[in-house]
Nucleic acid binder design. Structure first.
Lengths: 200, 200
DNA sequence: GAATTTATTCAACAACCGTTGACCACAGCA
DNA sequence: TGCTGTGGTCAACGGTTGTTGAATAAATTC
């Protein structure tokens, strides 16, 4: 299944530390740091130690590079597996796992922050990010949440999670930025629970 | 106090529908719609029916125009006056007044959304916006909030408000976007109350 | 070895951007 | 009427950007 089928020089794969992967890493980092427009192809190439033309050779246009660099890699379902069993306290566990995951995986955090930073000026990315958040929240909480106004409950959860990411990684609100995953779970968890089970 | 003191033609004031005001309106709108980098001086001039050079004549550099267009106009203290008397239920009133204010004042909403959209890629603006939100929350809730971890409580309130604005006006999460100010006050208010008075 | 396909670089183009300076029109004051 | 300061436009400059095409080097199959 993995045999080289071409006749000439074999293509590089995305993983590993070949120049192709370095371009993706550099792009992801810079999109996360400065957003889309302020990130230039030349700057990405410079950070990756590569001529800007090579980026084109691999990924095409700058927009194509964006979607390639921001393509999700892991399935969030596994991250929140078995979380529904907890009944109340599900919010706390949810927030703690999410924040903890981003804390332990800088690359995934870069991806998420880049997605948010870019989404604010790119409607297309905004749609993708919104659907992703709503989708995750729905698969995780869809069955546990109270039956009435289920969509609105999900939306409220998403709004608080958006605010958490924005405050912690973009706006850098001190007390949110320095808090640990456990602390945020303890503080914000009840909000999630209330949106899922409380009165609206 | 308002006498024309110069000898030549008197300067235009910012208000009113002279070209100076139209430039400010156009800039505010476009910054709110597309963010800073994707908004060109030429586009602003075009929307305002004005040559781009005139923008320079009035406001200097593009950055100067930004701070001029995003300068706050009204004092948020008056908007939330007498809100602390309510004891519990203060969160509901707070959210409802804030959302309602943006709903009734498109110009102020443009200002706020522009501030958020620009802040995401401009550290300087991000600092200003964060301090503004934290400042407002502090003056409104500083005296009523529980004494322990007061700063963290304020930060949590700010995070939920950030999420609300982001979800409603930028990411356009359906159920948040279509909800009325009263509905949002009823749903999100208890979260604010909990952050202010509840256990962390 | 030849043939072929990919990796990688270099130099350059065309478009666009923010900004500038020259230039004229107009309104108020002496 | 002249003087002065502002309103407003025009054309252009210098820089940056995304993108391209040609050209060379390396790796693989026959």
């Amino acid at each position: 299944m993995t045999g080289a089928r071409g006749r000439g020089r074999p293509r590089l794969d995305d993983t590993g530390d070949n120049k192709r992967g370095q371009i993706l890493d550099a792009a992801r980092e810079m999109f996360a740091e400065r957003g889309f427009e302020r990130t230039t192809m030349r700057a990405i190439g410079s950070r990756a130690g590569v001529d800007p033309a090579l980026i084109h050779h691999y990924f095409g246009t700058k927009n194509d590079l964006l979607v390639a660099a921001l393509r999700p890699e892991i399935d969030p379902t596994t991250l929140f597996a078995g979380i529904a069993d907890r009944g109340t306290g599900v919010g706390r566990e949810f927030v703690e796992r999410a924040v903890g995951f981003w804390e332990d995986n800088p690359q995934q955090r870069s991806r998420a922050v880049a997605l948010l930073r870019v989404a604010v000026t790119h409607d297309e990315v905004a749609d993708r990010l919104r659907e992703f958040f709503v989708g995750v929240a729905t698969t995780v909480f869809g069955d546990v949440a109270r039956a009435d106004h289920r969509e609105r409950r999900i939306a409220l959860v998403v709004s608080q999670m958006f605010g958490l990411v924005l405050a912690r990684y973009v706006m850098k609100v001190g007390e949110i930025e320095t808090a640990t995953a456990a602390e945020l779970g303890r503080s914000v968890g009840p909000t999630i629970d209330n949106y899922l089970f409380g009165e609206l």
